[in-house]
Design a protein around this nucleic acid. Structure first.
Lengths: 338, 338
DNA sequence: TTGAAAGCGGTACCAA
DNA sequence: TTGGTACCGCTTTCAA
């Protein structure tokens, strides 16, 4: 492995000049630059990340914290992130926290030690302690919250997909389709982004002149460890259909729950969407695999990842006035399940 | 951020002594060690990865190269990998190559620059040029091939799941079920691990006294860019069923293709498994979501990731006689699709 | 068992 | 536009 000194000697210049060429920082006469570049080429020289980092403090590394990597949603987001990152010479580490707040913290501390340049944080819970920790962190380093509702009183960078209005519209669509009793399967309320969607659902009912009925809202029992979202959807549908006055349509917080719900409904002999319509949120790949294909409120997942990476990189480069709050409009995709 | 010098001052010793304590390298008097540890604690000091790395060359970082991250199979593998890595203080970078050999190379060169301590390589293609490059690399640094057939003439570290015998057995099972014409949907032949499975399929037929018939083997047109495996499965089933003498059972290289095949068969009005049985390989989560649930040859995917990490870490620690060739026996899981 | 000091491979300031 | 040089934070001889 050749060093900057080897290059300097071969090119007949000083180390400083070589440094200027490789970091593209400072004026170098074109002829000199070419000589240096040739020397770099000839020696197949690449600067050491360590030596660079020790001075600059930059690692050219981003990290993404996710609650559950077995949800393909994050895989899709990663692809967008990776693409932008790579274009700018960054690499991405993935930190899977298994929905544990403790692991979110310990992982983050590890990332800080490693001096990653920026962090993308996919929230799972919104409890005050962890949340405050991350809000503080977001003021000290490039940081983006994903899928987390903005706070009124704090400026935090975020990228998310609108969930209130879109859920409201979905309710109206179901009502127009003739559905009278629209149920909901939701995650625990401390998961904030999903709260948003649920609030839209309730508001939609009210605007259609329907009184929201808590009896046909299924909420996952408190923090059921080990239960996948698929299972929650399955059990939710089962619980809702066993009510004395069961729903004729079911909305869910996320697609994968809707898939679980459909699985139960079919098994129990209900026809989807004739007996019960089902509507999801996300538009994961699975939505077009299951039958009937899932009607859903589609997030531009890959683009979300791309934008997050762009925000981070702009902040790392200390660009002024970075637009660091982005809300995407989802797309309502009607398929066979409604 | 405090430095080693701050710790040294506070503990009343030299930088060298602090270094000996943190790297656990060299003799330190117990009392001194405790004083240093207290100072470290008090200052919340953590050594800089850069400064350490510049001397030791170690980054405590692993990388995993995958062809297509939207296949959840790799997500599952990552989980196993991550768990073991974390326990030993390592973090993992994921490199998604989109099945491009060029990107495999460029990504790897980036990893080398970053001095990652070990690489896990999920092969997609087996072309001589890239393969030779990686074989050479595997002799120079901790490296594990995943899902790649061993070579006769080279010792390469690998972790994979047996595919020949298990595929053979699957054929026999289908024959016992009364199936007479067993077709196959496969990936292009340059994907070596899948070759293995296909060879087992053919051998199984022969041992059952059935002449393999190329007419009911669907092979994805050469390197169809943009086609997902799901789509290939769909189109494969379509092609096979349009033959003058269509199959009454279909095996596939991987589960996700089987899912695509089932999707077509149902749409075209065939009953699975009565008209056509379908059998996959992998046991991805989707296998129990689709209907009918997929019969498959299950890989212990998470364990594969764990073992790969263990091999890598053992090699990094320069342990002697590391068992670096592991073949798992798959489990045959009978569900509803056969 | 400890400390002094010379690197490691770069960056960046200052002077020329 | 260039070179000299003092770092960056840690490791590792070498002497004491």
């Amino acid at each position: 492995m050749s060093t900057i000194l080897d290059v300097a000697k071969l090119a007949g210049v000083s180390r400083s000049t070589v440094s200027r060429v490789i970091s593209n920082n400072g004026a170098v006469k074109p002829a000199t630059r070419i000589a240096v570049e040739n020397a770099i080429e000839e020696l197949d020289f690449t600067p050491s990340y360590f030596a660079q980092g020790i001075k600059t403090g930059k690692t050219k590394t981003l990290a993404m914290i996710v609650p559950d990597y077995s949800n393909l949603y994050y895989g899709e987001m990663f692809r967008g992130l990776e693409q932008v990152a790579l274009k700018h010479g960054y690499m991405v580490m993935i930190c899977n926290t298994d929905k544990s707040s403790t692991r979110e913290r310990s992982y983050t501390e590890e990332l800080l030690k490693r001096k990653v340049d920026g962090i993308i944080y996919n929230t799972y819970k919104r409890n005050s302690e962890n949340t405050q920790y991350f809000i503080n962190l977001s003021k000290k380093m490039p940081f983006v919250f994903m899928d987390l509702l903005p706070w009124e009183d704090e400026h935090v960078p975020y990228v998310l997909t609108e969930g209130f209005e879109s859920s409201k519209k979905a309710v109206k669509y179901l009502v127009e389709k003739g559905k009278k009793r629209i149920g909901y399967i939701r995650m625990p309320p401390y998961i904030s982004v999903v709260q948003h969607r649920y609030a839209g659902y309730k508001q939609g009912l009210i605007e259609c002149g329907i009184e929201p009925d808590g009896d046909i809202v299924y909420q996952c029992p408190n923090n059921e460890v080990g239960k996948t979202h698929l299972e929650i959807g399955y059990e939710g549908a089962q619980a809702l259909m066993s009510k004395s006055s069961p729903p004729d349509a079911i909305m869910t917080s996320v697609d994968i729950m809707a898939v679980g719900a459909i699985k139960y409904l079919k098994k129990a002999g209900y026809h989807v969407p004739h007996d019960v319509a089902v509507l999801g949120f996300d538009d994961i790949a699975l939505a077009t695999v299951i039958e009937p294909n899932l009607t859903t409120i589609a997030q531009p997942t890959r683009r979300i990842g791309e934008e997050a990476a762009k925000i981070l990189i702009a902040k790392i480069n200390e660009e002024e006035n970075v637009k660091d709050q982005i809300m995407f409009e989802p797309e309502f995709i009607i398929r066979q399940s409604t």
